[in-house]
Design a binder for these strands. Sequence first.
DNA 1: CTGAAAGCGCTAACAT
DNA 2: ATGTTAGCGCTTTCAG
Lengths: 361, 361
Amino acid sequence: MTAQSDEAGRVVRGRATLKDVAHRAGVSVPTVSRVIAGNYPVATATRRRVEKALRELDYVANTHARALRGHGARTVAFVLNDVRGPSFAQVAHGIEEEASRRGRLCLVCVSGGDPGRELDAVHAMRQQGAEAVILIGGVKDDEPYRRQMSAIAQSLDQSGSRLVLCGRPSLGESVPATVVQYDNEEGAYAITGRLLAAGHRRVLLFGGDAALTTTAQRIAGYRRALKDFGAAFDDSLIEKAAFDRGKAYVAMRERLGRARDFTAVFALTDAVAAGALRALTEAGLAVPEDVSLVGFDDVPPAEDLRPRLTTVHVPYEEMGRAAVRLALDRREGTTTGAEQRIVLGTHVVVRDSVARPPTVG
Amino acid sequence: MTAQSDEAGRVVRGRATLKDVAHRAGVSVPTVSRVIAGNYPVATATRRRVEKALRELDYVANTHARALRGHGARTVAFVLNDVRGPSFAQVAHGIEEEASRRGRLCLVCVSGGDPGRELDAVHAMRQQGAEAVILIGGVKDDEPYRRQMSAIAQSLDQSGSRLVLCGRPSLGESVPATVVQYDNEEGAYAITGRLLAAGHRRVLLFGGDAALTTTAQRIAGYRRALKDFGAAFDDSLIEKAAFDRGKAYVAMRERLGRARDFTAVFALTDAVAAGALRALTEAGLAVPEDVSLVGFDDVPPAEDLRPRLTTVHVPYEEMGRAAVRLALDRREGTTTGAEQRIVLGTHVVVRDSVARPPTVG
DNA sequence: CTGAAAGCGCTAACAT
DNA sequence: ATGTTAGCGCTTTCAG
């Protein structure tokens, strides 16, 4: 069974093709094709012979030939910064589940947050004729980016594919893309509100790559909450630190070394919260007794922090599923042109990391 | 620029092809192909015209046609249980990095641990003509599995592709597959040794899907350590609990409800350790003062547990890179036939979750 | 019910 | 330097 050969005894190198199978079964190529497709009458005896040959030669169809002939390749493609980030991983999972439910294969690329690599990836996916190209996560939303992305959206739309922006801002209503968002600003507003309602007035906004769109939105929610609760906005309470755990740890340690001029910390992501928590605890500060702490994302590790982290739940997995669903349904509807947008809700998950501020003196 | 049209003014639907470009530039199809490939002399004036047409029509090559014609599709495919698991995510990251470094695209499928879905995925990847098909993570190593996988390995090898088993046992030296492993048993031996060296004699082996190959290997290491340290093996200290955090939490809570007949816990994965830690802490037991705890995997969240988890580091990311590297290098060498195996080292990462057992009385 | 012919988009020989 | 021809593996007419 291992060394395959046709009826003449010749060993077939590489994959067996329809021709090989036809040869061996003593029929023509289209007949084999029909047996496989099963959508056309074939005499039972013939079918049996063909099926036997198919098995004996271990035939596997060539997707490329199929894609070339007919309805393209049934694949969905996505690009993300890093699969190791729990939030990205959740989106990826949602995409994969929904795609495979619909009989699609997934193409994946990591960009490491580099716009250039992202563009390369999109290009490769375009070559593959992916039915949808999903871009995941915040971006530096500048002019070149918008221009290039809009052009890509146009091209994809033109060729019957679809650009999906997932957790990333719209490019404008006239750009033919699907946008899947979550109410980032509202989530930040709600969780800042929790802190303020507990009596905190000096809330350190901590971490976050200032260039990213998601950061800006979260900061906006924070500021709006401050205003609504009548708390003063203090620029010195915006602490710029990188968007990762390790940098957050270092940054918090430094900040604590200078002064502790806050009673609560709003970490812009759960990962940043983890780093901050570590620094806080090591400095002998109890959370939440001395300092309250909240995060954003509600990724699984948030529940394992001590204390369990109060944070904002973002429906990452559902975003991934929605991205695939919208893009694919739209394609079938052959509607064309305009933007399509959906905004998913977020909500605060109350756990153990928030308390009233310590009474002074 | 958006609505594309050729020189006759006809709007081109779908992707522009070489023919469209040739038409517009007033040259033949191969000339365009040559301009793109850049490996053949083309008059400068012609080249310019072609390049212009290429741009104007927003031409993107069709990978399927290319794959059909020549050297297949340059893609690497992999299947994993769940991207959300940090260890899987690390392997995936390694694969993606190495693949994109080598100019390959990645195909990914999730199996949810279901052998049937895994088989389907492999089939789809075979159809795509992936250069390597990488299967990640432990399996239920029974006869049907071995038979099917061996057949798949043969078929892939035959068609110039390669099956890679990553963190999964060999199928035998005669099966043409690449096996990337880590010294699982040794890691378990080493970390159990730590516990025993600290004076523990009753070490609860906790969690782990008994059917999985990885579990069996870790248990073997545990038993060997017990023997070498002269500690008795006690079957009642093997606690079967599911391979995830939530189930581990429940199981540990139940066990503690019955009796506490151990002074240390060896959790078979870090995730299980997290669940166990939670139950332990809630039961008023201090770790490591009352009970020592170790894990396995050294995934990022392990460092955020309180206390920081002592565990076994597994080079997951490197495994992913090695999988791609070995499979691709081998292909180029056109060696054929036999198995190729590599075993990566593990080591204990000492953190804060192990202490001497409490002195009785 | 089955075969012959055409063609998807591309590239590599083979002519000019 | 460029065009013509052929064919990768498959499916879909169109004839019988």
